[in-house]
Design a protein around this nucleic acid. Structure first.
Length: 566
DNA sequence: TATTTCGGCGCC
DNA sequence: AAAAGGCGCCGAAATA
């Protein structure tokens, strides 16, 4: 059974029952209060709730202590289908951009220039889009179903995978809101102690903490620049050059190569200054309330399908302050991390049994050493990163060919994705999330280089852009499919956790970081939660890759604070 | 003065 | 040691 909710979650609601063929059965107008009652009454029969945007609807239910097991997020699913290679030519893909479409600029705010064209496109199409009120969830739902049916008619396997992706993405949307509601348990006392230890006491009236001020003085003295503000790149760069350092920027990798007494205190200053500005007392005041950090997760916020966050920088919590993430009394944090996820993903996608076998013992990088492919674990890692990211220079680029030789199938998959991107074509993840197409500027550059009178600069530019896009599509298939595996992992875990609840509480997802999950659990359930995490990972592997013999090794630990994990 | 861009760096 | 894919966020600098 599917139940479509229309209208506004806080105002008047229209509840519509739809059968599995998309035929409307009943329609019910409801007030907000009546909605809550209907959700509570109908949820036990496990309907799939269909709504335009989980982040708009679900908080209203959660604040009334209602959870739902399944949903279909029309906005998220629309954007997957709209871009999907598999859905090319369908009505949904061909239709005008409308209010269901995310602005591409929102989808990818990368400053790497790779997506400049998309941003331009977004600006152009900003105006004439349908207004918000035009969203009809039933029409959109029917359209999405018919899109899947159309795909299934010629490519049933592709349709089945997309359906799984849409369900996983929607489940992710539920999880994101549930995690935000529960929050990440955060000890401001521990956080404050860490800051005080590293930076000195909290400044009463703003300004630099003690230790930063002391380091500033040291730097000024060593550079003989009395008024220097070390936060000013321009001032600092001038002062460094004046003192005889041969640097072109103030970045730490360049500084590290210099031999000068100022380097050490300056690097220390930068490290602490970063902590102070990114996760210092101001951050604590802004983001921690009642012992919980509640970041806003943005499901599908990254083109590859990874999540982003808005505010608080939740996905970049530095190691220095992870000790502030502490389980409540009588509770524990079960932290699980998928080891070498992306290599396992490309092994499974390509059906490379040899590479899958290298991961069988748990540590895939060590497996590469044991197989005699590279001589050290560190080399295995850097070679693999080179394969996944498309290294062109350095040690990574030198080592990567060893992998290509030993594992032509798996490496061939990412190489092929790179070639596809270089041509300007789309690539897709295992479940069917497709990469964006390069924009007009990209194509214009390629055309310019292909013309008879093209200058060497034109050709260089075109080649550069092509390779950049190829590195993006190369990584897209691995990162995107890894994100799908992680979504399935979490979706399965969530259901298992709900079943573990007892009178002492319900273990729940508290944090998610691409290939890592954290469950906040009553302490006595730690073992059961560990089992649930492990089983859910196995399920996710089977769900995506069937019987292919790849394992997704996990490290799982139950700890009282996050810094004890790893 | 307010907003956008840039360099830098945290995370995976 | 640096560099490649994806992000968000900060203060300073640049721009409107």
């Amino acid at each position: 059974m599917f139940i479509v909710l229309g209208g506004s979650p806080t105002g008047r609601v229209t509840l519509t029952e739809v059968d599995s063929a998309g035929v409307v059965l009943t329609t019910l107008p409801l007030s907000h209060t009546e909605l809550l009652a209907e959700v509570a009454r109908r949820e036990p029969s496990r309907p799939r709730w269909v709504w335009d945007d989980t982040s708009q609807w679900y908080p209203a239910l959660l604040s009334a202590d209602l959870t739902v097991e399944r949903c279909h997020d029309l906005r998220l699913c629309h954007n997957i289908l709209r871009l999907s290679e598999a859905a090319r030519g369908t009505e949904l893909a061909l239709g005008e951009r409308n209010s269901w479409d995310d602005q591409p600029v929102e989808l990818a705010s990368s400053g790497t220039a790779l997506f400049d064209d998309l941003a331009d496109l977004a600006e152009l199409s900003d105006g004439p889009a349908d207004d918000e009120g035009a969203r009809d969830p039933i029409a959109e739902y029917v359209l999405q179903r018919s899109t899947l049916d159309a795909i299934a008619a010629t490519a049933p396997e592709a349709a089945a995978r997309l359906q799984l992706l849409l369900a996983a993405e929607s489940s992710g949307a539920l999880i994101a809101e549930e995690m935000r509601t529960r929050g990440l348990p955060w000890s401001t006392a521990v956080h404050n102690a860490a800051l005080t230890e590293l930076l000195g006491p909290r400044p009463m009236f703003g300004g630099r903490p003690e230790k930063l001020e002391a380091l500033s003085d040291t730097i000024r003295t060593l550079l003989q620049s009395p008024g220097l503000n070390p936060d000013s790149q321009q001032e600092l760069l001038r002062a460094l050059k004046r003192a005889g350092l041969t640097v072109t920027s103030t970045s730490k990798w360049e500084l590290r190569s210099q031999k000068h007494p100022v380097v050490e205190p300056l690097l220390e200053y930068k490290k602490l200054s970063r902590l102070n500005s990114a996760n210092g007392w101001a951050w604590m005041d802004a983001w921690v309330r009642d012992g919980r950090f509640r970041p806003e997760y943005v499901v599908g916020g990254v083109v590859t399908g990874r999540w982003a966050t808005r505010g608080g920088g939740a996905l970049q919590l530095p190691a220095q302050i992870r000790g502030a993430v502490r389980a409540d009394d009588g509770w524990t944090l079960v932290v699980a991390d998928a080891a070498q996820l992306e290599p396992r993903i490309i092994a499974a996608m390509s059906r490379d049994e040899k590479m899958a076998a290298a991961g069988r013992q748990g540590d895939l990088y060590q497996g590469l050493v044991d197989a005699g492919v590279v001589d050290t674990r560190a080399h295995a890692k850097v070679a693999m990163l080179g394969a996944l990211y498309g290294a062109t220079t350095g040690e990574s680029a030198r080592l990567m060919p060893k992998l290509a030789k030993a594992y032509p199938v798996a490496i061939g998959l990412v190489e092929n994705a790179a070639r596809t991107g270089e041509r300007g074509d789309q690539v897709s993840t295992w479940l069917g999330r497709s990469s964006p197409r390069p924009g007009e500027a990209w194509h214009a550059a390629q055309r310019a280089a292909a013309e008879a009178g093209a200058s060497p600069a034109d050709e260089r530019r075109a080649r550069q852009l092509a390779r950049d896009w190829g590195r993006f599509t190369r990584n897209f298939v691995a990162q995107g499919t890894a994100a799908e595996w992680a979504l399935c992992w979490m979706a399965g875990l969530r259901i298992r956790l709900r079943a573990l609840a007892d009178e002492r509480g319900e273990p729940h997802l508290a944090f998610f970081l691409h290939d890592e999950v954290m469950v906040h659990s009553p302490a006595h359930l730690a073992d059961a939660v560990t089992d649930a995490i492990t089983s859910a990972a196995e399920d996710a592997g089977r769900l995506l890759f069937g019987r292919f013999p790849v394992n997704f090794a996990l490290t799982v630990v139950a700890v009282s604070s996050y810094d004890q994990a790893k």
